[in-house]
């Protein structure tokens, strides 16, 4: 009897402790990186100071390979710095940087599109690269060009056969992304100009690899992919007569593209700032960014804000 009372008491106590623990998780944890940098800044030499500390970057899986590759070369140059890069999606990245659990939040979309206005304003945007997107179709379809109007009608289910847009008599099969996906948000915003609903029978896949595989194999399939995924096995269609190429994205004639953002909460600490500067340096922009199929932010001849206003 006594023993079982003891057991129950232990359980209750531990549960209470566990509950306390979860609420304190959300408090900012900047101390590790900030503290370490300030301790070392005294040793500063004239040409190069030695940085140390740790950075946690969380978010978009589309941006993850780039940040990972760059973080490795950054850590080679600054051996006392450790950078952790995690995926989890744009929503996770923005939540964690806003909550202070991560130093950098990677995102495919502007913070104000996901977060409430208050927390979004606290975040500072660093646009490190640009990703272009193209509508892709099964290579057996004879269509080469789709207008905005035709794309809207296809993705809203108004046109269901390829013969209505100049192809053979074949049913259109949509390979879409989940409605919360950043890629889908970009495609809908800049290619369609409208939100679309999930149609009965439409396929939704989260990973670009699966979308590519399904577009390649499924007769009559249409989907959309980042430019880095394009090759001969699938067919990229022109948008309003404009070829989806890097140059067309850079000079502003091809509108379907998005910035890759790395958000920090407030102005970044010294070590995070050095890393972001390195990310934007010519060395990285012209090598790693291009290598991995992104378009360097420095190459863009136009700028676009969250509302889609374009400035030269």
């Amino acid at each position: 009897m006594k023993k079982s009372m003891l057991l129950v008491l232990t359980i209750i106590l531990t549960l209470t402790l566990a509950a306390c623990g979860s609420s304190s998780d959300n408090k900012p944890d900047n101390s590790s990186s900030a503290g370490n940098t300030s301790a070392n800044s005294g040793k500063e030499t004239n040409d190069k100071k030695e940085l140390s500390g740790s950075i946690l970057a969380v978010g978009s899986s589309a941006l993850q390979p780039l940040v990972e590759q760059v973080s490795h070369s950054f850590m080679d140059e600054n051996p006392k710095v450790s950078i952790q890069v995690q995926g989890g999606g744009s929503g996770t990245g923005l939540t964690q940087v806003s909550g202070g659990q991560a130093d950098i939040g990677n995102s495919d979309v502007f913070a104000s599109e996901k977060l409430d206005a208050g927390p979004a304003e606290e975040l500072v945007d660093h646009q490190v690269a640009v990703v272009g997107m193209a509508a892709v179709i099964n290579p057996e379809i004879t269509v080469d060009n789709l207008t905005k109007d035709q794309l809207v009608k296809i993705f809203t289910g108004e046109i269901t056969n390829w013969k209505d847009v100049g192809g053979a008599d074949q049913k259109i099969q949509i390979i879409n992304r989940p409605s919360s996906s950043g890629t889908r948000a970009t495609f809908e915003k800049y290619a369609l100009g409208t939100k679309t609903e999930d149609l009965q029978g439409a396929i939704q896949e989260d990973s670009s690899g699966t979308v590519k595989k399904l577009v390649k194999e499924t007769p009559g399939a249409i989907g959309y992919l980042a430019l880095s995924y394009l090759d001969e096995s699938i067919k990229a269609v022109k948008y309003e007569g404009v070829e989806p190429t890097e140059d067309n994205v850079a000079n502003g004639t091809y509108p379907v593209w998005a910035y890759e953002h790395m958000y920090t909460k407030g102005e970044p600490s010294e070590i995070v700032k050095t890393f972001l500067d390195y990310m934007l340096s010519d060395e990285v922009q012209n090598k790693d960014v291009v290598e991995l199929g992104y378009i360097p932010a420095s190459k863009m001849q136009i700028k676009r804000d969250v509302d889609g206003n374009i400035t030269k």
Binding site: G88, G89, S90, G91, L94, T95, L115, P178, S180, D206
Partner: peptide, 11 residues
Amino acid sequence: ITLSMGNTVMG
């Protein structure tokens, strides 16, 4: 759940 959890904001 697996498709949307990562893309939505906590809360």
